[in-house]
Nucleic acid binder design. Structure first.
Length: 423
DNA sequence: TCTGGGGTCCTAGGACCC
DNA sequence: TCTGGGGTCCTAGGACCC
């Protein structure tokens, strides 16, 4: 199934370089060459950095308030995250990549795996051509790594970033060399938990890790670890995911821009989240059978009382309309709320998902069509006039909890009034 | 006193990913 | 004062069934 001429790579990983920053630079060329960071929701943490920002010592996840002096001193350009822009540019990049690779698997907003066609005799030259085409068509630079499986294509990609954008691993000698000084914490499948355990044993490079017996992987890191073992030795254990799978969980959670201490305001905020969750379920044509509602106080404030309540609600009928979901979420939130607590975040997780079509076949769902037609009408209106044009009255009008985005760029590619004007 | 065995489904929690 | 959000997979253990 993975057969290909001996010594040639089978898998490619294409990864956009510093994607969020690159996406901003497409429409803000004055940011080229400047240190740039993109912040998470509420403008709280660094989630993307340009090369210039990395050189200043800014790390992923750094809270903005802790590095404010540094940002100011070096005139770092600070941006709020603009997911409408990133999502749209991601779609464009993926379309170009898909036109060059027959078998193709979108792995995340900025990454895709591909299997190389048998006819490609010069993988490295092919990768150069693909990367150039993506850059020409979208303005986004990509790095491409190739190897005999996904794990090693990931390793190659990491090396490609430091090596002109393309890296191909073809035989075990090259693989050995690549793994010899590859830090285990950068390996796909090694997070902080495994890293700490391995480092305590003196294992710090991917090559050292590979030398451990297969049983160690199996016992310490379960079957995923066992798959990693095979891939490190060049045998493929993860294939491409060629069919889009329907989501198993759909969730929405947000931190508030200020603490919430009143039940009323909290209910208004979760009412807004519940509405958005219902929209997301309808976008994916799914209905949920369960809703998990949770509240969080700030873990970083050990001087304040903590409260992390969770409640799971079973829906009588699988549901994806706001009229079924919002009242449940508000009722549960009222029940979970404890006076005296300063809530920082709330969220809703929809599980037990089934396709909309299966619900409509159910005998006991005669009440649905009315709300289903109402929801479709609301979705059409909001699609035309913008999200939030129609919403639930329970959401209220006090927006003090809403997300802070002080450095947001325009929706250049997805909103008519934000489109760039050429003089 | 001695109390089966094998299967499924569900859930909670822990690991990981970007 | 200020520390993101949305996912996946795996395992162990309990309930339940025949």
């Amino acid at each position: 199934m993975f057969c290909r001429k001996e010594g040639l790579p089978v898998f490619a990983l294409c990864d956009c370089n510093n994607f969020y920053v690159a996406a901003e630079r497409v429409f803000r060329p004055e940011l080229l060459g400047q240190p740039v960071v993109v912040l998470s929701n509420n403008d709280s943490c660094v989630i993307a950095r340009s090369e210039e920002a990395k050189l200043l010592g800014i790390c992923m996840g750094d809270p903005e308030f802790k590095i404010r002096g540094l940002l100011h001193r070096h005139q770092v350009r600070v941006l709020s995250s603009n997911y409408a822009l990133y999502g749209d540019l991601s779609d464009r990049v993926m379309k170009i990549l898909a036109s060059h690779f027959h078998l193709f698997d979108v792995y995340s907003i900025d990454e895709a795996f591909a299997r190389l066609d048998d006819g490609i005799a010069d993988p490295s030259g092919y990768a150069v051509m693909v990367a150039a085409d993506v850059l020409k068509c979208t303005g986004i630079p990509v790095s491409i790594g190739m190897g005999p499986n996904k794990t090693l294509a990931k390793v190659a990609n990491r090396l490609a970033k430091k090596n002109g954008g393309i890296k191909v691993l073809t035989n075990d000698q090259q693989i050995r060399m690549a793994l010899a000084d590859f830090p285990i914490e950068d390996l796909w499948g090694i997070g902080t938990g495994y890293y700490n355990r391995l480092a305590a044993m003196g294992i710090t490079t991917a090559l050292q890790l590979r030398e451990l017996p297969e049983l160690f992987f199996k016992q310490q890191m379960s079957v995923q670890g066992q798959r990693m073992y095979h891939e490190l030795w060049g045998r493929p254990a993860f294939d491409l995911q060629l069919r889009a799978m329907s989501a198993k969980v759909v969730s929405i959670s947000r931190s508030f821009s200020a603490y919430i201490t009143e039940a009323e305001l909290l209910c208004q905020a979760v009412s807004n989240y519940a509405w958005r969750l219902a929209e997301k379920l309808r976008e994916q044509r799914l209905c949920c059978r369960k809703l998990e509602i949770f509240l969080l106080t700030s873990r970083h404030r050990s001087d304040q009382p903590q409260h992390f309540p969770v409640h799971t609600h079973q829906m009588a009928i699988p549901c994806n309309d706001a009229h079924g979901i919002v009242p449940v979420v508000v009722r549960v939130t009222r029940m979970l709320f404890q006076p005296g607590m300063r809530y920082r975040k709330a969220g809703i997780v929809a599980t037990g998902l089934i396709p909309e079509s299966e619900v409509q076949l159910n005998l006991f769902t005669q009440v649905r069509p009315k709300y289903s037609r109402l929801s479709s009408a609301v979705d059409r209106i909001n699609a035309s006039f913008g999200r939030g044009t129609l919403r639930m009255a329970s959401e209220g009008s006090d927006t003090s909890w809403k997300m802070k985005q002080n450095f947001l760029t325009r929706h250049y590619t997805t909103r008519w009034e934000d489109i760039v004007t050429v003089k």
